[in-house]
């Protein structure tokens, strides 16, 4: 297991050195970015079991902040990253707390409504560019603008952020926080009877989740250099975060990364196959995958994998126990 981990880490670190061209570098950077966003969603949706369908709000805030800081004040966009986190956190406290009084389907429905409201407001608010959105610096003024032609620097920045996020999640997962989250997901009533302050721990999950989703949004607009209401706050953004996490395995550490490694290349492929109109096909595939997942493998691919592995181990045990059986 340990050796496997080393090999995977090495593969991620060395991958850019074996690239045929920027196309694959860019796709790899997008995979990591998607994994960051989905891992951030995973803290609230996967571990704590609160299925937010409104995380685009945080992604959008994170994506707008750097470009707004740049267009309005001429500061390097990266200054917007902490601003995005701060605003997301504030939104979390203002909107998250009342929403948390709702549970299950009703919580999800409320998150959609809140996100759509914010998207509509942003689309009609001239200060933030209304429907057109915002642009970043056309050419990098200093390296602080983090505007690179090659995808490789983005790749390493994203890798570093993802590593930090996963390390933090791993640490929390095995501490009291993680146990309380999973208890809340399994049942709020029994969790409370065991002394779990449910609202407080849900809020912790939301704060972390919102903060890192905001970072994912910032990184997105730093790389792309452009943002509009649809790609920042659109409901499809929320859906993307969820499906990536759920495909790999919601509530597992590496689920979102696995999901991203499958879905992002798939999306790139369908888009290039069908050109501009391809996004329709992409979402047909998304929809199909989601339905099939929900119906057959709600635990995601990692869960399926673990079950297959333990079944194989079990068969091996049985075979070893009965050497004369055949």
């Amino acid at each position: 297991m340990f050796r496997f981990g080393i090999i995977v880490c090495a593969a991620f670190l060395l991958y850019p050195f074996f690239l045929p061209d920027d196309f694959y570098g860019r796709m790899a950077a997008e995979v990591l970015l998607a994994a960051i966003g989905a891992s951030a969603w995973n803290i609230l949706g996967g571990y704590a079991g609160q299925i937010s369908v409104g995380h685009a709000v945080f992604f959008g805030i994170g994506a707008y902040a750097p470009l707004l800081i740049f267009t309005k004040f001429g500061l390097p966009p990266i200054v917007g990253v902490p601003v995005g986190i701060l605003v997301s956190t504030a939104v979390t406290v203002v909107i998250g707390l009342p929403t948390f009084r709702l549970t299950g389907h009703y919580f999800s429905m409320a998150t959609i409504a809140v996100a759509e409201l914010i998207r509509l407001v942003i689309s009609n608010w001239d200060y933030v560019g209304a429907a057109t959105g915002l642009m970043g610096p056309a050419v990098a003024r200093t390296w602080l603008d983090l505007s690179f032609r090659s995808p490789i620097p983005y790749y390493y920045i994203f890798l570093a952020v993802l590593a930090c996020l996963l390390l933090l999640t791993w640490h929390l997962q095995r501490s009291r926080m993680g146990y309380y989250w999973r208890a809340i997901r399994a049942g709020e009533r029994p969790a409370r009877s065991l002394g779990v302050p449910v609202v407080r721990y849900k809020l912790y999950a939301l704060l972390l989740s919102a903060g890192f989703t905001s970072v994912a949004g910032s990184l997105y607009s730093l790389m792309v250099g452009f943002i509009d209401p649809e790609s920042g706050f659109g409901i499809l953004k929320s859906v993307e975060l969820i499906i990536i996490a759920a495909l790999g395995g919601a509530g597992s550490l590496f689920g979102p990364l696995v999901g991203a490694m499958i879905l992002v290349p798939l999306q790139t492929m369908t888009n290039s196959l069908y050109g501009g109109g391809g996004s329709g096909l992409t979402y047909i595939i998304y929809g199909g995958i989601i339905v099939l997942l929900a119906r057959y493998e709600p635990g995601g691919l990692l869960d399926l994998w673990h079950r297959m592995m333990s079944r194989r181990a079990h068969r091996a045990d049985v075979a070893a126990a009965k050497p004369h059986a055949s």
Partner: peptide, 30 residues
């Protein structure tokens, strides 16, 4: 679909009709 997910995890319940919505919407688009 629904009968199989309605007693499953909440994520599956929500994803089932959500995925269906995407599928139908973009089939119409297609």
């Amino acid at each position: 679909l629904i009968r199989h997910v309605m007693r499953g995890p909440i994520l599956a319940q929500i994803l089932s009709t959500f995925g269906l919505a995407l599928l139908l919407r973009y089939l119409a688009f297609f």
